[in-house]
Design a protein around this nucleic acid. Structure first.
Lengths: 225, 225
DNA sequence: ACCTGAACACCGTTCAAGT
DNA sequence: ACCTGAACACCGTTCAAGT
């Protein structure tokens, strides 16, 4: 005997697009960029999509699933060098710089990348291109595979670290304070070289580290087993 | 006019130790080891300490504070080589292996280490010892500082990655499946070298990567600026 | 099949009150 | 000063019910 709910014209929310993995991922990525990983929640994505929190479970088994999809979607923006201009090493470093910036520019993405390997197609294309560049440089398959692992892990970690410094506020000042107030007796070497830890710009340190790994990969004998 | 609550003998919980930063950190680390980072919460630590969730805020400003303290407390277990037996490189690799194992053995600790730099005393002692070993090897201050950064970042990232593989279940099988079901046309190089990504044991890969970085640090010219 | 509100079992943090 | 229960504003996930 209750009143029927007053009919709600669909015109009131006519543009409510049907859900899909793509729209959910895109919405989630926009939210990630705006509020960081802390601000990203299934509930907020759902609200943004004008639905309840349960709706997303039709498309993703859980939050982790969504994270993985977001990560690989973001990897689509990594610029893969298509020409053969410049030597292979320069192109490899350019690719990795692009990879770094993609992780760095979208807040929380690096943290996400550290939390799981993305076996998605975009990640695989990056690996494929890296193998191509390394092999152009005469690096054989076994060594190239190790190099890809080492380089991607390194760049991902650098991105995560840089993001922390940026997002958690100016921890750099705090770090300098700590190093400067160190006991020279207890930490003689660290105290003496404390300024060295802030030498170079982040950019040149990044390029240096890439060269370190590439040089090392070329020079170091492969593991036996 | 209400009844007074029945008096509760202190004998019923006589051993309720007074709270302190140390006991809280120790309890939290025990919980971390048992349940991983997911299972660690302020509320559970509080429950374990037989108190309410608000009590811990007398000692820590927030959860992040507790995390930082936990991390450095755990670093106390990293074995710093004290003798001068063996060459500096071997001792450096031993130290870093110990660092890796500390992060690896306590679930969630590596993830925590990736999320913030620990300026605590135990972390600083590790850096000091690394500088000592590198300088014994003739590496000068600027290069040594860069090397310490690169090595610690690498090992921390490896620990985090390994922990993911261990904790999130057998993602390794899934990875193999993905690589094996790859389209040879779309990913020719990756497909051809797919087995190389699983060559070597984790241990020998780890040692290899350390040598890669050390070799690279020694060979690569310093950044200009 | 797709979508949903309500409910469940949790969070970190704050606050007013107790000792 | 130290400690605390209750409250606040959130979570991810499940479930039964709706279309």
């Amino acid at each position: 005997m209750e009143d029927k709910p007053a009919p709600v014209s669909r015109r009131n929310r006519p543009a409510k697009a049907p859900l899909s993995r793509e729209t959910i991922v895109a919405t989630a990525l926009a939210l990630l960029e705006k509020d960081g990983l802390e601000g990203l929640s299934l509930r907020r994505v759902a609200t943004q999509l004008d639905t309840g929190p349960a709706s997303l479970y039709v498309y993703f088994a859980n939050l982790n699933d969504l994270h993985a999809e977001m990560l690989d979607a973001a990897f689509a923006e990594v610029a893969l060098p298509q020409t053969r201009k410049g030597n292979w090493r320069a192109r490899l470093k350019t690719l990795l710089t692009s990879y770094l910036m993609v992780l760095y520019n979208k807040r929380g993405l690096a943290q996400l990348a550290m939390m799981q390997v993305s076996g998605g197609p975009n990640a695989l294309h990056i690996v494929e291109k890296m193998l191509e560049l390394l092999m152009e440089g005469g690096v054989l398959a076994t060594r190239a595979a190790l190099a890809v692992d080492a380089l991607l892990l390194h760049v991902t970690a650098v991105a995560a670290e840089q993001c922390n410094w940026r997002d958690k506020g100016h921890d750099l000042e705090r770090a300098k304070t700590i190093l400067n107030s160190l006991s020279p007796e207890e930490f003689p070497l660290l105290y003496a070289s404390r300024d060295q830890f802030f030498s170079s710009t982040p950019k040149s340190r990044f390029y240096w580290a890439l060269d370190v790994i590439i040089d090392g990969v070329l020079a170091t004998p492969l593991p036996d087993d």
